[in-house]
Amino acid sequence: MTMVPQSGGSVSRSGGTGGSSLYDVLELILDRGLVIDVFVRISVVGIELIKIDARIVVASVDTYLRFAEACNRLDLEAGRKEPAQLPEVVGDMMEGGARGKSKGALSGAVDAVSESLTGRSSKREEPEEEEEAEEEAAPRKRRPARRPARRERE
């Protein structure tokens, strides 16, 4: 199995059930997969809030004010990293010769920042053994999300 090196882009890759958290596969296990109508389904009420942000969130005054507040307290001199752009990368991939313009790797500052921003530990809080598997206490909505569902087959 190819090992994916950890990088400044904060990649985490998990294979099967080994050490990987239930978090990212919870939606897959609960919402995707075959449904057989003649069978009975146990009640999954309570963890259907997996889809808490699936509905379209219209950009709201609250969101705007939050962004303005965030800009207000930004330390603009704190050092700007290269923007997360993709056009060049995509171009390289298409040519089949991505060399990887490796920018300077980021430190573990990302984890610390993500903790304070998202309000949850970077160690995904998983449901307790004997407790109902709930989605973590609603992650604060960070931005208006208008996202159409697209299912595509080649």
């Binding site: 994916v4 882009g9 990649v11 890759r13 897959l28 991939m93 490796s102």
Partner: peptide, 28 residues
């Protein structure tokens, strides 16, 4: 290899999480 290359090149405070190989939950 492709996704590793992409992940290396994405910066700007973005987290790229790949899980797999998985059973084909999304394709049944």
């Amino acid at each position: 290899a492709a996704q590793a290359s992409l992940a290396r090149q994405i910066e700007g405070g973005v987290d790229f999480r790949l899980t797999g190989p998985l059973p084909p939950y999304s394709f049944v």
